[in-house]
Nucleic acid binder design. Structure first.
Ligand SMILES: Nc1ncnc2c1ncn2[C@@H]1O[C@H](COP(=O)(O)OP(=O)(O)OP(=O)(O)O)[C@@H](O)[C@H]1O
Length: 748
DNA sequence: TGGAACCCGATTTTT
DNA sequence: TCGGGTTCCA
């Protein structure tokens, strides 16, 4: 047996060596599950003699896939992992579908619609069905449809099960949406998983072929697979049963996306005589961190009890940071980073800052910049979601897939070609009449009886697309994009505008261009336009890591899953933020699992921080410390002063506060239930007061604010629910607040 | 047609 | 507070 297996403990090694038949590794955080998968693949190749292309490994993110490939390369010779199939469910099946999708009536150059594209298509469907987004929010429809798809509930079944009025409406949209996707020759994210099932069902020969090809199937983070993923995996493994899954039910944090722990719980029933291995040694964190994690997760009722034992000593205590507001919180985080760097010589890359919602990143980001701490935000506004990038990509999508009307509509008047709504509607009518796609209608514009001005604009557009198409056939992706930039003058337009925003866009477009270069360099055999588009459709900001760069990582807790950092800050530990407003006990348990994930990312030092007040929707809100902090053994926590929490004067916990009046604060404005202290707000509308408002505020009025303290009104703007007051606070300076939310108390 | 002025709702979390 | 969407006007 080869020596790399030395890097495993006994149970891990057994799991690696059990190469045949169904195997599940069920174990807590940091117990080396991912290592087992990695080594098992290396073992299959090196010792069992399996050819890399016969192994399919599915991960949760592209980043995890990249890292796994790298590590396997590290164990074996360089390049031996290159023909392995490693990727997310989505990227692997997108690639496979390109070879087979013609069998189920799509063109191989199908477009992949991201969430924004899907929503815009849904909006269109709703418009056609006369459903107003006010009564039925697009986001809700989108998530309902996506949830259905992820549970493999297709429109007919959805329709049958739709009882209440709302789901019946959703059902109508769903049906039309699916239809339109097909018209666009497009798949949305969920289709990338559903279409393989359709394909396998309708063409069993294809399934058989793939079953013979993917002789070994391995799945990481199995606890977060959804029903469709489960079904696809089952189909592929049906013959040989060589399915190997690893996961931790305590880290299931994607149930809102259809992830279903029962996939894990039923593994034994689904695959007869499956072997199950449990790893108990944690190699990542200090005992302190692990004890904290264990005490938190033990509060969940729905869980498989698992042992998890530290392999190192207690280490440093957990530090609780309490701050006046979120700015101060961020400042303190920055201070701690600098002081640890100086005292311990830690690199920036050793630090990670986590938060529950993306909105929290802004303040942290500002503070990092102010303190000249290099940082990188993962997620937030993805590069690929930027308008200019989406526009450029839409052009390329249309070039590849002329039925992609979604993309056509996006760029037909960008840059402006004087083709406005009116013209577009005419074009749509014409297309409908002739039963053509929008692009075909554009090509045949001269037969549409349009004004010659419009015909010219449309033909000009068509010839650009046609020229790009020829370029795509003859040249590289780089050539196609260059042609777009040159013909439309996109870059020079932005340069001329010469605002900071336009220059940033200019830079982004340049960046996209250099990405096409890199892409050609890295994928010699598969560098067509289609390959490029498929890759970037499924890529996200979360994927990039450059080991060489040295920066502090900022990300949501969700994005942190699977990662580890020596020093971790979990910020925003406040009631209603983390845990985020949860109404059902099940949701609270998922929040708790999320907290468990956050804690267990830390190797040597953990900070938990919270702020007494925080701006939300531009208004300061009082915050209470998260109950989650009370779920950690107070002996493990010290305050910034170094005092043990268990010995500190008892903090009033959020639960003890519940029901008790807190001065001047409802945590957030409660719609339709104004707190008694809020100055009564007159309903907007016909009875709007005119003339000098009978406001309780006048310049000079002395007021008290829950957070900013005492102050004097300087100015009153507007009236009614939108009334704002400018106040000079004794300690906090000048602020303009909305009366409705400010919870001001008039004093004196 | 396109820009500017306004209004309103949003914050979960991501492939 | 911010950004998307709508409305209104040149
Ligand atoms: N047998 C071992 N000996 C030494 N270190 C190990 C061993 N197994 C794993 N590790 C180390 O422990 C850390 C956690 O391993 P890994 O990421 O594989 O755990 P995991 O179970 O996938 O964690 P999580 O579920 O939290 O993502 C890694 O730094 C890894 O290198």
């Amino acid at each position: 047996m080869t020596d790399f297996l030395q890097g495993l403990n006994d149970v891990q090694r057994q799991a690696v060596l059990a190469t045949e038949g169904p195997v599940m590794v069920l174990a807590g955080a940091g117990s080396g599950k991912t290592r087992v998968i990695t080594y098992r693949i290396a073992h299959l190749i090196r010792n069992v003699g399996v050819s890399p292309q016969n192994i399919l490994a599915l991960t949760f993110t592209n980043k995890a896939a990249g890292e796994m490939r790298q590590r396997i390369d590290g164990i074996l010779e360089r390049g031996s992992a290159s023909s392995l199939w490693i990727g997310t469910f989505h990227s692997v099946f997108a690639r496979l579908l390109r070879s087979y999708i013609h069998l189920i009536g799509y063109d191989r150059n199908f477009s992949i619609f991201d969430a924004d594209d899907s929503k815009s298509l849904i909006k269109q469907c709703m418009k056609e069905l006369n459903l107003s987004p006010e009564t039925l929010p697009v986001n809700l429809v989108h998530s309902a449809i996506s949830k259905a798809k992820n549970s493999f509930v297709l429109p007919p079944e959805f329709h049958r099960k739709a009882i209440d009025d709302q789901s019946q409406k959703v059902s109508l949209v769903y049906e039309r949406y699916v239809h339109k996707l097909r018209e666009n020759n497009a798949l949305d994210f969920d289709d990338l998983l559903i279409k393989p099932i359709e394909l396998f069902t309708e063409h069993p020969a294809v399934l058989e072929q793939l079953q013979g090809y993917f002789k070994y199937l391995l799945i990481d983070e199995y606890q977060d697979t959804n029903r469709v993923q489960y079904l696809v995996a089952k189909m592929i493994a049906a013959q040989h049963q060589n399915i190997f899954v690893v996961g931790d039910d305590a880290q299931s944090i994607y149930s809102w996306r259809g992830a279903d722990i029962t996939n894990m719980l039923n593994f034994n029933d689904d695959y007869g005589d499956a072997q199950v291995f449990k790893l108990v040694d944690n190699y990542r964190s200090t005992k302190t961190i692990l004890d904290a994690a264990n005490s938190v997760i033990s509060r969940n009722t729905r869980q498989i009890k698992k042992e998890l034992v530290a392999n190192s000593g207690m280490g440093e205590p957990i530090t609780l940071i309490e701050a006046f507001n979120e700015k101060r919180e961020a400042e303190k985080v920055a201070d701690h980073i600098n002081s640890i760097r100086l005292s311990k010589g830690a690199e920036y890359r050793s630090f990670a800052i986590f938060y529950r919602t993306n909105a929290q990143s802004r303040v942290l980001e500002d503070m990092m910049r102010q303190n000249r701490i290099p940082y990188k935000i993962f997620g937030s506004v993805s590069f690929y979601k930027r308008k200019e990038i989406k526009d450029a990509v839409a052009y390329m999508r249309l070039v590849l897939n002329e039925r992609d009307s979604e993309s056509l509509l996006r760029v037909i008047n960008f840059p402006p070609r004087k083709i406005g709504d009116v013209s577009i509607n005419k074009l749509k009518e014409f297309a409908e009449e002739r039963n053509m796609s929008l692009y075909e209608a554009v090509v045949h514009a001269n037969e549409g009886g349009f004004q010659s001005r419009l015909v010219n604009a449309l033909t000009g557009f068509a010839s650009l697309i046609e020229a790009m198409r020829q370029q795509a056939e003859a040249g590289t992706v780089y050539d196609v994009l260059s042609m777009l930039y040159e013909t439309t003058g996109l870059l020079s337009l932005l340069k001329e505008e010469n605002t900071p925003e336009s220059l940033a866009r200019h830079e982004n477009l340049q960046e996209l261009l250099s990405m096409t270069r890199d892409f050609a360099d890295h994928n010699h055999d598969a560098a067509t336009l289609g390959d490029f588009l498929a890759t970037i459709s499924l890529a996200s900001d979360y994927d990039e890591t450059q080991e060489s760069d040295n920066y502090v990582s900022l990300m949501t807790v969700h994005a942190a899953k699977g990662l580890e950092f020596p020093v971790v800050f979990v910020t925003g530990m406040e009631e209603r933020l983390f845990p985020l407003n949860s109404y059902e006990p099940g949701e609270l348990e998922e929040e708790r699992r999320l907290f468990y994930v956050a804690i267990t990312r830390a190797q040597t030092k953990l900070f938990l921080s919270w702020a007494q007040s925080r701006y939300m929707y531009g208004q300061p809100q009082m915050c209470l410390r998260s109950t989650f902090i009370n779920e950690v053994d107070p002996d493990l926590i010290v305050t910034e002063g170094g005092r043990k929490l268990s010995e500190s004067p008892t903090k009033v916990s959020a639960s003890a506060m519940a029901g008790r009046p807190v001065f001047g604060s409802s945590l957030r404005p409660q719609p339709g239930r104004p707190s008694a202290k809020v100055p009564t707000v007159k309903p907007a509308g016909s009875a709007r007061p005119t003339g000098a408002a009978k406001s309780e505020y006048r310049p000079g009025t002395r007021v008290q604010h829950a957070i900013f303290g005492p102050g004097t009104v300087l100015d009153v703007q507007g009236k009614g629910p939108k009334q704002k007051v400018k106040i000079n606070f004794r300690n906090a300076g000048e602020k303009t607040l909305m009366v409705q939310y400010a919870n001001l108390k008039v004093v004196g």
